[in-house]
Design a protein around this nucleic acid. Structure first.
Lengths: 275, 275
DNA sequence: CCTTTTATAGAATTTATATTCCATTTGCGT
DNA sequence: ACGCAAATGGAATATAAATTCTATAAAAGG
């Protein structure tokens, strides 16, 4: 007897062997299928109480399916919970393990980044709250001029936003620090405008400083950054969070780019509706 | 002191009080925000090991935020895990409903772009030939200076490449046309250098022209473009093809960015092996 | 209807996990 | 440089949880 290692395999096993199970084990199987979250998170005695069985029955149940004990079976339920939810890090972790095995061909590197990018995109679904996104779009839609700023790794995103916003005939200014005029370029921001700042750790000091200063002028700030600890998050009216995956010691921009593009298209729709 | 009862409240508390926290507590806060799943599922000692702290620090951490112990705080992380999973399922359901009737909510747009990005990335795996990739890497590795050029939609990629190559201490020049000096910037290309050009349809004329001119000077050219019909493909020594998916009349850059990043990392490895 | 086998309940035990406590270190103000 | 307060590490302890064991109860077979 071999114990199912995945949630789906276990589910399947529970279903097919359901008939041959004893009364109490049937009862537990039904409970397990209906309450997988309990199986994943509660203690043996808590589950036993809820399913109206003895704790020992749960252990017998687990052993009947080939596990050494209940805890081992619980791991299967737990990993399911994680896969379903926001966790894509496990996949990445296994990815980096694989990386350890001397992957020196370029196409292996490409595969790793593709996997990482897909994981980051999937994750984006979970971490971006629809409300924040809506709020960001609305703020930008009401802007007279959108000022864009980013430096270093985040700069390509601002640069892309400048291009895409121009396609929408939305007025925007890219504060790129060209000619050492970072703050000078920002000086023309005024009431009615909005600052869209993008920065990831380690946060470029100019961008952080500009955000603070602009906040003091009562200009609305929308930001794209990486987590609540970001200094941008603290000073922004809306902060959209992205978490890029690190593969081979480099972070991609796939997810951030996708979010930026979404912002543009959603903004375009909002503007269309107005007119 | 009142302990946050929800994940969002806790996150918020972690962010706002992050500054006033002691060294070890900061460390734990950061780990918790980056690995909420671990916080939800692992044991105190397992988390302690991963976050490189003592188990007792985790208990102090929980108490610092008003909980009676770590277990109480863990409940918050656990309930988030459950809610997150079910929310996601509901969202998928409501999304497919909305999609049928052309919903215009921003998060639907986001989902479309995420799906599009994933499709483009998967496609990338098939269309990029390992040989070409290897050849591109080799050509770039042998370059004295890498000249980068792109305009319009492709420009962010060149801009990102410039940033990433600098990280590798690989000499590069970004021909961005700033100050109307597009061709002037390119004038200093000489034997031993390589031109890396990126352009998608409709191909920016400057870039195409520059590629042609540079080809005549017998400078190797590596390009990233979209299909064999690209004028870049014809004049390049190696042309890496990417096909971005068009969603809502806009093309993402997720796949192209991923390819660009791959090129950088593979190049980095090639350079390491040389030395 | 009795015997044998299998399943079950519940207490007892073992194992693992969280928490506390205190000696030591670190940081800070004087 | 000194003393004080806060923070930390790590062993010791307490708590909780999983698992085993056994007497009892239910089925199954003759």
């Amino acid at each position: 007897m071999i114990a199912p290692g995945t949630y789906d395999a276990l589910r399947n096993e529970l279903a097919t062997r359901h008939d041959e199970l004893s009364k109490r084990l049937k009862q537990i199987a039904e409970y397990a299928l209906e309450n997988p979250n309990d199986m994943a998170l509660e203690t043996v005695s808590a589950i036993a109480a809820r399913a109206k069985v003895q704790p020992s029955s749960l252990i017998r149940f687990a052993k009947a399916f080939g596990y050494t004990g209940f805890s081992e079976m619980q791991k299967v339920f737990r990993s399911h919970l994680v896969e379903n939810g926001s966790n894509y890090k496990e996949r990445i972790r296994s990815l980096s393990r694989d990386n350890a095995r001397q992957s020196n061909s370029s196409s292996v590197v490409l595969d790793d980044f593709i996997d990482g990018g897909i994981a980051a995109l999937n994750n984006l679904r979970h971490v971006v709250s629809p409300e924040k996104l809506e709020q960001a779009v609305e703020t930008l839609a009401n802007a007279d001029v959108i000022y864009l700023t980013a430096q270093k790794r985040a700069f390509p995103i601002a640069s892309y936003l400048a291009y895409a916003l121009a396609q929408l005939d939305k007025r925007c200014v890219l504060i790129d620090g060209n000619g050492g005029m970072f703050f000078e370029q920002a000086r023309s921001i005024r009431k009615g405008d909005v600052l869209l700042a993008i920065s990831f750790k380690s946060y470029a000091s100019e961008v952080v400083q500009l955000v603070k200063e602009t906040k003091n002028k009562d200009i609305p700030i929308v930001s794209i950054s990486d987590g609540v600890l970001s200094p941008l998050a603290q000073h922004s009216d809306v902060c959209l969070e992205v978490e890029e995956v690190e593969v081979h010691a480099f972070r991609s921009l796939a997810a951030s780019m996708t979010l930026a593009l979404t912002l543009v298209v959603a903004l375009g729709r909002a503007l269309d509706q107005e007119s």
